[in-house]
Design a protein around this nucleic acid. Structure first.
Lengths: 192, 192
DNA sequence: CCGTTTCCGATACGACTGTATCATAAAAGC
DNA sequence: GCTTTTATGATACAGTCGTATCGGAAACGG
């Protein structure tokens, strides 16, 4: 056999590169050649990892979700009380907002891939399952309506934040107000 | 002079076509040739109306906003009480949500152009001014925080709605709850 | 140490991209 | 009615796209 490389690791490395490219230059710049060059691999390597560009973009979408979960888990692990639900909520929201360059890249890429999903059924499927996952998470603490609303607020704040139309402080104020107004799942948890 | 055509009308017609193309086949499909063919004009005509593709996309972004304003105004004009603020609010929100095929096209195109704006400073400028306009509108009735929050909710509902992850009914429930929880601009308007 | 198998990077291909150029046809001035 | 002027649609061009193909390097079985 020829020199074996860890294909899965390479796929993740390429996906990381694609997120960076889409986040900085847009989805149209994420061509096979550009991705290969930026990732430091040959164009053939990209082709062998992903049969088509559509498959690559779909994988990137999944990868962003997986990476997101991993980051949240990592941050939760080093919290004093990892089981505290409100802390977990805050970490998840914080990780979703484009509050630094790193998360700005991810937000921009996610936004581009959401728009991409609007016209690509297979990508839409991936996006939908990601949405279902988020929804399930928020449903742990809130009613269905509040869960949808909170997720919508966070998603909707990404655009203005990226454009610099609002400040991170304003975004957090809105999030806090939304959480306060949200109805918790178990009324017994609140004194009302 | 040769046969004169209404350039502005042609620009709007092309922009309409571009919205349809982006909404159905994605922004990458909005090439000069495809746009020309779909609009029923020559490629040269598109070139003469818009010097570059970037300029075309920027115009489409502006055009969507102008068209949006026009539609809201048209719907308001045929309301029994066009000055009723709550009715206006509801019309604006209704027009922003992808609740039929027409508005779905616009939402998908807007989403794609927002993602595009994330990496194109000039388009970002247009997007920002559109955001400022919306913000100003919502500020007429609500506090700044509530205005940002309401706009974020509506924006954030577009994705799940387009994906079919939530129903229009759920979306409206969330919007209603958000409006109810929002603090109005003049406390005197409410009995508290 | 030598097939043999497997995967590697490079190259090839046809299609399509955005943009520039250009001959031509149509309207306006007189 | 003829000249002048200008917008028109077609074509040209260099570059890039996604994808298919292929010779050769690298590791294993023997």
């Amino acid at each position: 056999m020829p020199k074996i490389v860890d294909q899965d690791a390479r796929r993740r490395h390429i996906a990381d590169t694609v997120v960076r490219i889409i986040g900085t230059r847009g989805i149209e710049a994420a061509t096979v050649r550009v991705v290969a060059a930026e990732a430091g691999v040959s164009a053939g390597a990209v082709q062998r990892c992903f049969a088509t560009r559509a498959e690559l973009l779909r994988f990137v979408l999944q990868y962003i979700n997986i990476r997101f979960t991993g980051r949240v888990a990592a941050r939760m692990a080093q919290q004093p009380d990892p089981t505290d639900e409100s802390v977990g909520l805050r970490v998840v929201i914080d990780e979703m907002l484009p509050l630094d360059d790193e998360r700005r890249l991810t937000s921009a890429a996610t936004l581009a891939l959401l728009a991409y999903s609007a016209t690509e059924p297979q990508a839409a499927e991936v996006m939908r399952s990601a949405y279902t996952g988020a929804h399930t998470f928020f449903r742990r603490a809130f009613t269905e309506e509040s869960a949808i609303g909170l997720y919508a607020v966070i998603s909707g704040l990404q655009g203005p934040l990226m454009l610099g139309a609002i400040t991170p402080g304003q975004a957090w104020s809105v999030v806090d107000a939304t959480i306060s107004a949200a109805t918790v799942r178990r009324p017994a948890a609140r004194s009302e």
